[in-house]
């Protein structure tokens, strides 16, 4: 098992620690906000994609890092979010800022339905079942019965939403800023969730399921709730991705998108909230450059990075940062002595 610092350590650093802790997120948010006006359309779209994936990965993190379950088929929730957005915006003319939360909700519903059998499965078998789900997923989207809604093999364009021109923003900026705000809210919520009572309960369930049960923690209910929350987040991420790209089809949600999400979560570190951002940036940016070399390079890199990550730093990129910071702090405290 990965070694975790006991809670005592965090308190030891006192107020300075808290300020330091806030620094990174604040910096990220400020930088993210500034990007709205710095990036051109194409790069802003990629930035929006990163945010969408970051939220989706956060969902996966919640499930893996706190429920101890691995979903290889998280693409299903991404698809649910994407298609919900498409249908709500195209059919009902809903504005995108309503369609995205709605996408989270339908995805959560799907999550609930999947959770009931899923929480009964051991880790290995859940991975196996969700792996199969990821492979079969495009067939759902291509299905003739569902085609009127999904657009089948051809897919469908999503109506371009109205930009917030009153604020002087163009469409790309609007979607980006909306995604950023959504991400800030959701990350903050998840942070509070896992550092509070719920987080402790989840921790207990993951480490000692039997003991948790005897401490009157309703393991089943918690697991279902986490599953739902995870599906909600990934659905929102899928919705944002779909709105930003403006087009979805069965080929948007192949097996590879599910695996890519998982890899993003691994790279960022399952147990880290900010790691989701690193992971998302990795899975969006690496293919952008690597696929220029040759088709398949990104994929090979993903695989190599995943294995290297588990080998060298099983707690992910965020874990590496923590270790580096501790190392630097030790050096500083030693030199000041």
């Amino acid at each position: 098992m990965e070694t975790r610092k006991p809670a005592l350590f965090i308190n030891d650093t006192g107020n300075r620690g808290r300020a330091q802790k806030l620094a990174v997120p604040l910096l990220l948010v400020t930088a993210g906000f500034a990007l709205t006006f710095l990036l051109d359309g194409y790069h802003l779209l990629q930035a929006t994609n990163i945010i969408g994936f970051a939220i989706a990965i956060l969902g996966l993190n919640l499930l893996a890092g706190y429920n101890g379950q691995i979903s290889v088929g998280q693409g299903a929730f991404l698809a649910m979010g994407g298609y919900t957005c498409a249908i709500l915006m195209n059919r009902l003319g809903l504005p995108f800022w309503l369609a995205v939360p709605a996408a989270g909700c339908t995805s959560m519903l799907l999550g609930f339905l999947i959770a009931i059998p899923a929480i009964r499965l051991e880790l290995l078998y859940l991975a196996l079942a969700t792996f199969s789900l990821a492979v079969a997923l495009p067939q759902f989207a291509k299905n003739k019965v569902l085609a009127p809604w999904t657009g089948g093999v051809e897919g469908q364009s999503i109506q371009r939403p109205q930009p917030w021109s009153e604020l002087g923003l163009n469409l790309d900026q609007t979607i980006y800023l909306y995604a950023l705000l959504t991400a800030v809210v959701l990350f903050w919520l998840v942070h509070n969730l896992v550092s509070g009572r719920l987080g402790r309960a989840l921790e207990a369930i993951k480490d000692q399921p039997l003991a948790a049960e005897t401490m009157a923690i309703d393991t089943r209910a918690y697991k279902i709730k986490t599953f739902c929350a995870s599906a909600f987040l990934t659905g929102v991420g899928g919705g944002i991705g779909a709105v930003a790209t403006g087009y979805i089809s069965a080929d948007t949600y192949t097996f590879f998108i599910s695996i890519t999400l998982l890899i993003g979560a691994v790279i960022g570190g399952f147990r880290s909230i900010l790691g989701a951002v690193f992971g998302a940036a990795f899975i969006v940016l690496v293919p952008m450059y690597a696929e220029k070399v040759a088709h398949g390079v990104a994929w090979a890199l993903f695989g190599a990075a995943t294995i290297a990550m588990m080998w060298l730093m099983p707690d992910g990129f965020a874990g590496l940062c923590t270790r580096l910071r501790e190392h630097v702090q030790r050096l500083i405290s030693r030199s000041s002595l």
Binding site: W299, L301, G303, I307
Partner: peptide
């Protein structure tokens, strides 16, 4: 499990 999935992805890409 993740290592094996990484291996899978790596072979596929290579």
């Amino acid at each position: 499990l993740i290592v094996m999935i990484g291996l899978m992805v790596f072979i596929n890409g290579s």
